[in-house]
Design a protein around this nucleic acid. Sequence first.
DNA 1: TATTATCCTATAGGATTAGTAGAATTTAAA
DNA 2: TTTAAATTCTACTAATCCTATAGGATAATA
Lengths: 136, 136
Amino acid sequence: MLSKKTKYGIKALIYLSKYEDNAPVQIEAISKSENISRKFLESILLTLRKNGFLGSKKGKGGGYYLIKEPEAIKMSSVMRVLDGPIAMVPCVSLNFYEKCDDCPDENACAVHNLMVEVRDSTLKIFNNKSLADLIK
Amino acid sequence: MLSKKTKYGIKALIYLSKYEDNAPVQIEAISKSENISRKFLESILLTLRKNGFLGSKKGKGGGYYLIKEPEAIKMSSVMRVLDGPIAMVPCVSLNFYEKCDDCPDENACAVHNLMVEVRDSTLKIFNNKSLADLIK
DNA sequence: TATTATCCTATAGGATTAGTAGAATTTAAA
DNA sequence: TTTAAATTCTACTAATCCTATAGGATAATA
């Protein structure tokens, strides 16, 4: 399941990418336009900023703005920051790998191998999809 | 994330599919071989039985056995029974559809359309993969 | 200095997950 | 007919994660 956090985060990024001049947009504006709880969105934008997707400006006339070109923002990186691993099982994750404690041999594990396939096909989509592609 | 329930369930199905004569296999045997908590596995096998994948026999010499040919068990159906929806978002699910309450127009929603793509590619894998394929 | 906005920490409530306990029921074999 | 072995069923619990919400601190602008 995609968390609401992720869904809201992507929607916010899309909203921001429409302001090509990169003028700061206030949380309130995004929150209202996309029907997202204001305080919740606040925390989401904060993590997007901390992870290098957004810049922010405090005080009057402040807000959030995209720091990179929409073409340069891959969905795979957005997903990893907001939703965590893309793989369905930690033992198959490229960026969040963890060994299963029940499974003695990964290569012999049918579940493992099945999930590798799923990961690859999902990753192919997220890697080839930029924020700019989403808007088209 | 794939739940442990699902992971264990698939492993149990694989274990059972190796007994081609379909003689009942006891929970205890599966539990030990696959390192799965006995009681937890118990409840998993029960739902697999209630959903037509397994048969069971009580009493001495009893246990669980496959009710269908491994070739006839599609991973998509196993996933749906144990893990729930295959789609990452309810508004994109074929079997567990639910409307988003924040989104006025699905077709105009970029997240929606992205997740349709992911669903299709994942579903393609699960639909074309049978229990028998997993063992090869 | 007043106002506007983000920044940050903490926390609450609900849902889900993973697992546990224990008694009831059924069956086969002694 | 008794006993032992197995599933079945209901209910419970502990831990974790998700979705927010609260409230004050901090910074920038007019």
